[in-house]
Amino acid sequence: MHRRLALVTASLLAVAGCSAPTALPSVEATATMPSGVVFAPGITTIDCGADAHDPTAVVVLSDDLYRVGGWNHINGVGSFETVALEPSQYAITAKNYLPDATCGNAKTLPVVLAKKTYDWDQQHANGIESQFASDGLTFGAVDAIVLEMRLDAATSSIPQPADYEAAYGDLLTADQLSELDGGKVNLELTLFGSGAAAGDPSMNAGTIIEVDPAAYGDEWIRVVVPREDLTFYTEQNYERTAVADGVNADLVVSGLRINPETSSGNEVRVYVGDAFDPLAKPELFKEMGMTFAVIEVLRAGS
């Protein structure tokens, strides 16, 4: 995707009163309601595959359902020469959807999601996208996004502050380096849809989440992003305009996108501006290895 998208993402977070990724609290338990299964917001360590899930949820990935699509720009040449792994290891593919002994032998999907930190051209080097418009989920009915996942240190290569300073210290100030990225796992979750009429801006809801590898290591966790942590906005030509929750509530959600991100949603090019030279430095990738067991969207009132 083009740089414009990430630039206005950062602005949108500020408009919504949020200058950092969604801070998800650690929680200890889940609550079960008579009408369905309700998970507590935040991050919970879990026994993978042990819990029941709400049957009314829109499921992208589970032990018995695979609806995952995506893209992979990484080809090992040009700006992609500096990735840590072989290009094929960044593919989003059902070939990797296999039984997992750490999840009760349920099928899981390992991925390595890579984000450029220097240039904004194809900044999301790969990513996950699922289409589910036929499920009839409206933006007004979205209750939460749920990920059951494990961070994989062996396949991760996440730059830390010293790495950013060594790579970009001659271009950015200390404050800019600190703002660029915090050295943790960040994912932008976006529910996307169409406009109310042909030619209208598309409708979206999303946020950038953060998971600290130092806190969760290789444990299985459940990440629950409740509706109130989502920013609702329309988008046209990469320009985003925040709208109040409830606007366009009857529009159908077309799908879910999971992008690898920096904590700011930015790259070095954002700070350098017109003087930026895409060939002046090798690309420093933020590569986040993780395994997904469940990806789903809960419906309100279920």
Rank of each mutant, 00 (worst) to 15 (best):
P41I: 08
L24W: 07
V8Q: 11
M33Y: 04
C18L: 12
R3C: 00
T22N: 02
I43V: 15
V8S: 11
G42D: 07
F39M: 08
G42L: 08
S26R: 12
G17F: 05
P34S: 11
V15P: 00
C48F: 08
A23S: 14
M33I: 02
T45R: 15
C48Q: 10
C18G: 06
F39W: 09
C48T: 06
P25W: 05
A52P: 00
L24N: 05
H2V: 04
A52K: 03
H2D: 07
T9G: 04
L13A: 12
S11Q: 12
L7C: 00
A29Q: 14
G49S: 06
M1I: 01
R3L: 13
F39G: 01
D47A: 14
L24S: 08
A20Y: 07
V38W: 10
S26N: 11
A14T: 09
L13D: 10
A50Y: 10
T9W: 15
A29M: 10
I46D: 03
A23P: 06
M33A: 15
A40S: 15
T32V: 14
P41A: 14
A20E: 10
V37E: 14
P21R: 01
T32F: 02
A14E: 12
S26V: 08
T45M: 08
G42V: 08
S26I: 01
H53Y: 12
M33F: 00
L13G: 15
H53S: 14
G36T: 13
G49A: 08
F39D: 04
I43F: 04
P41H: 09
A40N: 13
V37D: 08
